[in-house]
Amino acid sequence: MIKIKITWKYCLAFYSIIMLYASLHELVHHFSGYFICGDWGQKTFNYFETACEQDPKSLIATYIGPIFSFIMMYVGAHFLTHKSSDYKKHLGFAIIFAQLPLQRMISPFFKMNDEFYATAQLFGDSAFIYWSVIIIIWLICLPPLIKAYRSIENKHKLIWFLFYLVLFPYILWGPIFGMLEFLMVEKKFLAQPIIGIGLLFIINEVITILGYYFVKKYINPYYQ
């Protein structure tokens, strides 16, 4: 069980975790695309394209990003076991929601996610594919989310759970992520690519890793 307490230091730690895993999700796309295609594709904060986009095997790179995020959700759920330290439990809880599970679960309804795009490319955009993708994603996401819900010790645990699922990660991380994408893509600020990745993305990744190293201890809000 964990007792949620939001402090400004906790927000810094949680932000760093969200940005770290959002970036890793994108880098998993990009590097797997390199190994599949034999050359670098293009990568912004919120978009990737492989070097062999017309080859169906490039869709493997599309799937690998969500697979990474799903695995991390289960790693987070594992950290919530009763044998874990308080720090590890809070970290596990944060890792689950850092994968932005609501986005993974809701976007396929609008045919907007990696999972739906790749599956529709392979098997066609039919009602069967549409609902199959949605059901599979929900079946994958629900167990770690249920584990996270049950781990909350605070009163009004459903409100806390919905706050993390629907709002908190997005208001903490979303505006900065969107601003960085806008600066690099629309304003061409530090947009020059290195191994297909915009320089601003690389700089942000370095800052995120350093920030995470220094503030990760505060993901346990009771750290002294």
Rank of each mutant, 00 (worst) to 15 (best):
F79E: 00
F79S: 00
F79C: 03
F79Q: 01
L80V: 09
T81E: 15
T81V: 01
T81G: 12
H82M: 02
H82N: 14
K83D: 04
S84F: 01
S84E: 10
S85C: 05
S85L: 01
S85M: 03
S85Y: 07
D86S: 08
D86V: 04
D86N: 05
D86Y: 01
D86R: 03
Y87D: 06
Y87V: 08
Y87E: 05
K88T: 15
K89L: 05
K89N: 06
H90D: 03
H90F: 08
H90C: 03
H90L: 07
L91W: 11
L91E: 02
L91F: 14
L91C: 09
G92L: 09
G92M: 14
G92K: 06
F93C: 12
F93S: 13
F93P: 04
A94E: 07
F97T: 04
F97R: 03
F97Y: 10
F97P: 02
F97D: 02
A98S: 15
A98T: 05
A98G: 12
L100S: 12
L100A: 14
P101I: 10
P101Y: 14
P101Q: 13
P101D: 05
L102W: 14
Q103Y: 01
Q103W: 01
Q103D: 08
Q103E: 10
M105Q: 15
M105D: 08
I106S: 01
I106D: 00
I106Y: 07
S107M: 08
S107D: 06
P108A: 11
F109P: 00
F110I: 01
K111M: 14
K111R: 15
M112Q: 13
D114T: 14
E115A: 07
E115Y: 04
E115H: 03
E115I: 11
E115G: 02
F116A: 00
F116G: 00
F116D: 00
Y117N: 08
A120S: 15
A120H: 04
A120V: 13
A120P: 04
Q121W: 05
Q121I: 03
Q121A: 13
Q121R: 10
Q121F: 06
L122A: 13
F123A: 13
F123V: 10
G124W: 08
G124V: 11
G124S: 02
D125L: 06
D125T: 06
D125F: 07
S126D: 08
S126E: 11
A127D: 15
A127K: 14
F128R: 05
F128S: 06
I129D: 00
I129K: 00
I129F: 03
I129W: 02
Y130V: 10
Y130A: 09
Y130D: 07
W131N: 09
W131K: 03
W131P: 01
S132M: 11
S132G: 10
V133G: 02
I134Y: 09
I134F: 14
I134H: 02
I136L: 09
I136N: 03
I136Q: 03
I136M: 10
I136V: 14
I137T: 08
W138F: 07
W138T: 07
W138A: 04
L139C: 15
I140L: 13
C141G: 06
C141Q: 11
C141N: 14
C141D: 15
C141L: 11
C141Y: 12
C141R: 02
L142P: 11
L142Q: 12
L142G: 12
L142D: 09
P143E: 12
P144F: 09
P144A: 15
P144Q: 08
